[in-house]
Amino acid sequence: MSLEIDCQLQRDKFNLEVHLTVAPGSVLAITGENGSGKTSTLDMIAGLLACTTGKISLNDRVFDDSTTNQFVQPEKRGVSTVFQGGGLFSHMTVEKNMIFGRGAAFRNTPRFDSAVEQFNLTGLLSRKPSTLSGGQRQRVALARAFLAPSEILLLDEPTTSLDATSRDEVRGAMKTFFETYNGVVVLVSHDAAEIAELATSVAQITISRGENTAAVLRN
């Protein structure tokens, strides 16, 4: 019972091959140089990209299968994401971002209140993302992912471009998040210290550049 990925993504002159198995409760870190396909891997899990060939499944649910032509839309996959820069909706307040897709009543639940406290967002709820610091934005993004009902959590370089203080804050927030999360976590990161602190296993993308670039990711 786990997230299983066996697939290929072909773009002109770029071929990415991914073979991963991630069990619930574990945190897989993905590393690799820029442009090697880390974000594309997350996109295929989330359903923002379809595999060219191969299969992605979570437990017995097939998300993507090129042989049977199955493809589950992202909103049906139970995935929550913290993309680069947080991926916040800039026209909504922090609060609206956090309850996105949940209905206004969700704001008055104890779960919402505890997320506000856990991610240290008191006093920021009515602000727009553009008025927040990078670290605050990431904490909002984490809180939103925390509140969404999900079985898979995808994080794309959540602490890149943050200063040291914010990085520690966001890392601390991730740590407490992961402790209570019982889904699958896939974390893209460049940072060895972060990986050592948060991940339970690591997979590195190996890349061979020639006329065509071939990238392989397996664990």
Partner: peptide
């Protein structure tokens, strides 16, 4: 595109994403 994709992963279908996120951003 990633912001729109984010909305999809958080459970909004294509129409709801268009109405609540895309239209909000282009207002």
């Amino acid at each position: 595109r990633r912001i729109v994709g984010t909305a999809r992963t958080f459970g909004a279908g294509p129409w709801r994403t268009f109405a609540t996120v895309t239209l909000g951003l282009v207002r």
